[in-house]
Write a protein that binds this DNA or RNA. Structure first.
Lengths: 210, 210
DNA sequence: TCATATAATGACTGCTGGTCATTTTAATAG
DNA sequence: CTATTAAAATGACCAGCAGTCATTATATGA
């Protein structure tokens, strides 16, 4: 049945092409400003066709969010290979998260939208669940690093490593979010730079874990 | 000029009544689902009248955000009076933030929307600037507590207290955000409760500051 | 009582996400 | 090569929305 397979491949390919087009449009104008008509035009398809591949504009955006998580997970996987101790790996996770936010600011925005639940993932749709899986995978990388660190003594004994991982991740996301969204205000009113905030955060993490 | 004053009062009063109505509708249905027609009906006014008091739906929402900050600031001001040492006061700020998020979940959501910059405050409108001032005031309360703590020795010497305050606040917001938005997932996949996360966060803060 | 200014109205517009009857394209069979 | 069927794509269309503005109602002051 070679034809059926080819068709399935084409379908996946077209789906990805739509997400590509949606990225172009949405990253340029922002989710709420971008219109499905624009996406359709960028994809060289009619608007109706988009809805053969995605149930809604939001589901299309969720596909972009998923891409962000996949990239982030890959970066974390590769980067944590390098660390010697568990503590090193935790720091590497943080550094990599920062790197991700700088290298892929648009994808980072999608992650923040996910964390903020701007796009309700309660609906158990394929795209949502996958994003969730990827999000969980990211946390799991951090959990492993913490476990390792506790074992090799580079991290002080904590309670449950899952707790520690979630709290660390949430704190980090909070700091990065403020750095992204509010740095202009902070610079203007308090004369602080991104680097100031980050180095303070690093110092705190060291004190928390060492 | 008693009449002009009375008219100004009435204008303020009506404005507040509109925000009241908007809160009812928006807190019930959510910002994007709520419509200006619904708000108008709840306020017993025509839709056009709303636009005599607010430039847009977003500006109306910003007025609600501002209310949230005002309440939070007041709570923090009063609560921090009680603390003995600077460290105590920092902890009180955190506890009060948690209390706020539980007592006024809807207003807390507006604060998260502000932090996430869902409603662009770049436009230098009165409402935006006031929200910003209130946000800054909240941070300033924390700055003072940290300064005091460093002075009285209850907090270990940090770099710039502004840095510390922003990082602490951002971390806290990050943790509370995750608790609000993702706790169902976390409970389901990792069997952690809000209390687990919070107590871990407290422990970390203590290690950071003590 | 009339003139003026201020406040409020709601019909209207432009635009959007999403739908669906129709058309186009591709695969299959005779 | 042609007819038949299935799958894919289309775009005119719809309902609902934020926001506007000519018109109407209300209050003030002479």
């Amino acid at each position: 049945m070679g034809i059926a397979e080819r068709k399935a491949r084409e379908r996946v390919h077209r789906r990805n092409a739509i997400v590509d087009a949606a990225e172009d449009v949405i990253f340029k104008h922002g989710f709420s400003v971008a219109t499905m008509a624009q996406v359709a035009k960028a994809a060289e398809l009619s608007k109706g066709t988009l809805y053969l591949y995605f149930k809604s504009k939001e589901e299309l955006y969720r596909a972009i969010i998923l891409r962000g998580f996949v990239i982030l997970k890959k970066m974390l996987r590769e980067a944590t290979k390098e660390g010697k101790t568990g503590y090193d790996k935790v720091i590497i996770v943080g550094k990599t998260y920062v790197e991700f936010s700088e290298k892929y600011p648009n994808y980072f925005t999608t992650i923040l939208d996910y964390e903020n639940d701007t796009f309700n993932l309660a609906a158990a749709e394929a795209e949502s669940l996958q994003a969730l899986e990827e999000g969980n995978a990211v946390i799991t990388i951090l959990v492993r690093a913490i476990r390792e660190g506790v074992k090799d003594g580079s991290i002080i004994e904590q309670g449950n490593p899952f707790d520690t991982a979630f709290v660390l991740w949430s704190q980090f996301t909070g700091v990065l979010q403020v750095m992204k969204r509010k740095i202009n205000i902070i610079e203007h009113y308090f004369s602080l730079t991104k680097e100031d905030l980050l180095s303070t955060h690093w110092r705190m993490i060291e004190r928390m874990l060492k």
